[in-house]
Design a protein around this nucleic acid. Structure first.
Lengths: 247, 247
DNA sequence: CAAATAAATTCACATATATGTACATTTTCC
DNA sequence: GGAAAATGTACATATATGTGAATTTATTTG
C-alpha cells in the first residue's frame, strides 16, 4: 500500500526543486490537481513543522533551509568516498554516456550518485532512480556480491516480468546470466529492462557496502562498445581506488 | 487539520538525522510507537519513491542522497547572501549567545539561519524553529517592515495567548510595543513567549525580502545587556552589509 | 470606492486509509 | 540442526482523513 500523503510531501518538494520559486496554495493545488482544502491542510502541516515559510509578501510558500540542514546531517554519515564521484565523472567524460553508483534496496537497485551524459539522446537517470535488481547490469553487479542464500531470498520476492525481449524471466535465467557475467568479467544488459538501453557494470564493494558502477546509454551508440566500456570501467576503478589496506 | 502521514515523513527524516545510522522497520516502529504494518507502508512508500535504500545487508533502511540533491536544488535559489551568516556568526561569538536570521510565515516567524551559543545554558533553536510573530523580538522586527494594512491582516489571524507575564495580549498592546521599538531603535523581548528568555532584534530587509536578526539568551545573562547587544547588532550589520546600490 | 472575482479557510460527511490480527519468513540460540 | 524469537508482510475492517460545498477574506476591475 502506498501512503498517499507521504508521497505528496515528496511531490511537493520535487515541485519546488523544479520550479525553484515560491508558489501559492492555488498554484500548487492546480499543478497537482488537488482540492484546495487538501492542499491547505498539507501546506499547513509542512509549515507548522518548520519546513515551509513565506519568503516575501503574497508570493506564497517556499521550503525553509531546514530541508538542507537535515539532508546534510543525514548525508555527512559515511558519505561515499570522493574518488567514487571522480570515477563516474571520468567515466562519463570519456564515454560521453551516463555513469552511476548503484546500491541495493530489496528487489530494486537505487542510483545513489549520477553523472549524466551531455548528449542530446542519453540515459536520463537521477539520484534515487530505481531499477529491478535482476534485470539490469548494475543490479546484477550487486547480486554478484550476495551469497547464494541471500540471492535466493531476493528471488523469492521478485515478480518476474517481461520488460523487454531479453529480460530474464526466471531464477535460472538470472543465475545463468550471473555465471556468464563472472566468466565475461563484467555485467551487461541490452534492453533487459528499458527499451533501447544498454549498459556495462561491475561490482564495487566499499568497506562492507555492496555497490556497483554502471555506464549506460542508448543501445545503438553504446551497444557495440560494451566490452571496451567495461574494460575502461575496470581500469578507471583500478586507477582511482586507494590501494591502502583500509579498503 | 494536521496531515498525520505527512508529518510522519518529516519525523522519520528527523529520526535519521539524529541517529545517523540505518534503522530496521522494527526499530523505527518501536521508536515512534507506530504499528508495524503502518510503518511498513510508510517505509515502502519512501523506498518506492527513491528516498530510502538498504546500504548494507540486514542493517535496515537509510535515506538516499536524493534528499540532499533535492535540498540543494531548492536552496541554491536566492540563498541568503554569505554576509548574513557571517553576521550571526560574529554576533554569537562576541555575545556568547545564540544569533539567528528570521523570516515570516503567516502569524509565525521562522528561523532560517542559526548560530548557537556554546554556553551550557543557552537558547536552543534550530533552523525551522517557529515562534509567534507578535510575541517575540525577532517577530516584531519583521512586523515593523509591514504596512499598517498588512499588519492588520496578520492581527486578525492571531490567537492572542498569555504565554508569559509580558506577552502582549491585544492588537493595541502589540502596536504600542512596535511604536516603542521604533523610538528605542530596536526590538526587545523579555519572556514574552519563552520563559526565562530575553533577546534583541532589528529588521534586516534584503532586496524585497523581509528578514530580521536576533540575539537571544537566558534572561539573567542577556537581560541587563540588551541595549548594548542591540547596538552591537546594528554596528555589525553596518560593518558587514555591502554598501552597493544593489542593496 | 463599490462590485466582481479570486484566493484562502472552515466544516460535516463519505471514503480512502491506518491498523489489528493472522501468517510467513528470517535469525538467534541452544 | 531444530525450536523459539524476532522481524517482515498481507488483508479485511473500523476509523481517521481528505474532500466538496459553503463562508470568509483578499485582490482586482470598472
Amino acid at each position: 500500500m502506498i501512503v498517499r500523503q507521504a508521497a505528496n510531501v515528496l511531490e511537493i518538494m520535487e515541485f519546488f526543486a523544479q520550479v525553484k520559486k515560491p508558489a501559492t496554495l492555488a498554484e500548487i493545488a492546480d499543478h497537482f490537481g488537488w482540492p484546495r482544502s487538501s492542499t491547505f491542510n498539507l501546506l499547513a502541516t509542512l509549515s507548522e513543522k518548520g519546513y515551509l515559510y513565506e519568503p516575501r509578501p503574497r508570493a506564497g510558500f517556499y521550503p525553509t533551509p531546514r530541508w538542507l540542514a537535515m539532508a546534510r546531517m543525514i548525508s555527512e554519515v559515511e558519505p561515499l568516498p570522493p574518488w567514487t564521484h571522480q570515477l563516474i565523472s571520468d567515466l562519463s567524460a570519456e564515454t560521453g554516456e551516463t555513469a552511476s553508483i548503484v546500491a541495493p534496496a530489496g528487489v530494486m537497485a537505487v542510483f545513489i550518485d549520477v553523472v549524466e551524459s551531455k548528449a542530446a539522446i542519453r540515459y536520463f537517470a537521477t539520484i534515487g532512480h530505481r531499477v529491478p535488481i535482476h534485470a539490469t547490469a548494475s543490479g546484477r553487479a550487486l547480486l554478484l556480491q550476495y551469497s547464494q542464500e541471500e540471492r535466493d531470498s531476493v528471488y523469492r520476492k521478485i515478480e518476474f516480468k517481461q520488460y523487454g525481449p531479453s529480460t530474464p524471466i526466471s531464477i535460472e535465467a538470472v543465475e545463468t546470466e550471473l555465471r556468464n557475467s563472472i566468466a565475461r568479467g563484467y555485467c551487461q544488459s541490452f534492453a533487459d529492462y528499458s527499451r533501447d538501453l544498454a549498459g556495462a557494470a561491475i561490482p564495487l564493494p566499499i568497506g562492507d557496502r555492496r555497490l556497483s558502477v554502471v555506464v549506460a546509454g542508448p543501445e545503438f551508440r553504446i551497444g557495440p562498445k560494451v566490452p571496451e566500456v567495461a574494460a575502461l570501467i575496470a581500469r578507471t576503478v583500478d586507477r582511482l581506488r586507494p590501494k591502502t589496506s583500509a579498503a
